[in-house]
């Protein structure tokens, strides 16, 4: 009994944090889960919201969101890996320091400020578009627009590449030079080393990092909203639309069902991420 009381007393120090997290994070999430299964007219249990959220324009929203997130996770993932490798093997500690500091800064940077930076460069009257026009090539005549899928993907890369460099560099540093030397001694070519030693060790870290990038892109709202004013129908924009009042009667809770779907997708991604992290940490000590 005394032991139990002692335990309880020890845990009571956690109470302020636990209460805060429950009220400002737990309750809103519970409201979303409950709302997703509630009929707004009668207040009764229903699967109708989920059905609407999983069909038609909302299903298309998920598809576009996932496509955008895959593109803006895989492409920056590969570019980030190449840059990190190039920097790491350059042997220049000054270059390494500049790149890691710059990555820390750029990776923290998204939202509306980023949108304006790109409007000034790749918007229809942007500077880079002006240069291209002077060369006789108007990208806006050839199907390009900053305010579409491709344009948004280019903008997202601006914070995804530095993030990839930050998270993959420790893994690259974990590749022991001794392994490379051992492979060389045994007569392996560079390609054989990467295919049979370096690659397999890096794969879990690389995939884990790409999943992290996917999660970031999937939940992003501000950059796309500021650039397209909501015309690119990805799920976060559609959820925002419900709050801005564009709701058909009877569909008031579809936004919550969409939100629940996003939470489930990110949670699944994060489970895979932690599995891969555990795999990766086997070699990287």
């Amino acid at each position: 009994m005394a032991v139990v009381l002692g335990r309880l007393k020890a845990f009571s120090g956690l109470a302020p944090f636990a209460v805060y997290a429950f009220v400002f994070l737990g309750l809103p999430v519970i409201a979303i889960v409950v709302g997703a299964f509630t009929d707004p007219a009668t207040g009764e249990f229903t699967l109708g919201n989920i059905q609407v959220a999983a069909s038609g324009i909302y299903l298309q929203g998920y598809v576009t969101s996932i496509e955008l997130s895959i593109v803006t996770a895989v492409v920056p993932g590969i570019i980030g890996l190449v840059v990190a490798h190039v920097v790491q093997t350059s042997g220049s500690s000054a270059l390494r320091r500049v790149v890691s500091t710059a990555s820390g800064v750029f990776a923290n940077f998204g939202g509306v400020q980023l949108a304006f930076l790109f409007i000034a460069s790749l918007g229809s009257s942007g500077l880079v578009v002006g240069w291209l026009k002077a060369l006789g090539f108007d990208p806006y005549d050839h199907g390009f627009s900053l305010y579409t899928f491709v344009g948004i993907a280019i903008v997202y890369m601006y914070f995804q590449i530095p993030l990839m460099i930050l998270v993959i560099t420790p893994a690259l540093e974990g590749l022991k030079p001794a392994w490379r030397e051992a492979a060389d001694n045994l007569g392996a070519s560079g390609w054989q080393y990467w295919r049979m030693v370096g690659g397999p060790v890096l794969v879990p870290s690389f995939l884990g990092s790409v999943l992290l990038l996917f999660g970031g892109a999937f939940s992003a709202y501000a950059t796309t909203q500021a650039l397209t004013s909501g015309s690119l129908a990805i799920t976060p924009i559609q959820i925002g639309g419900f709050l801005n009042g564009n709701v058909l009667s009877g569909q008031e809770n579809v936004g919550k069902a969409l939100g629940l779907g996003m939470i489930v997708i990110i949670a699944v991604v994060m489970v895979f991420y932690s599995v891969l992290q555990r795999r990766a940490s086997k070699w990287l000590r």
């Binding site: 809103p28 999430v29 409201a31 709302g35 976060p236 959820i239 419900f242 939100g259």
Partner: peptide
């Protein structure tokens, strides 16, 4: 946990409760 809950989803729940 806040990493798993996108801000756009969180605010929906917040304004509800």
């Amino acid at each position: 946990l806040p990493i798993v809950i996108p801000p756009v989803v969180l605010i929906v729940g917040v304004l509800q409760v």
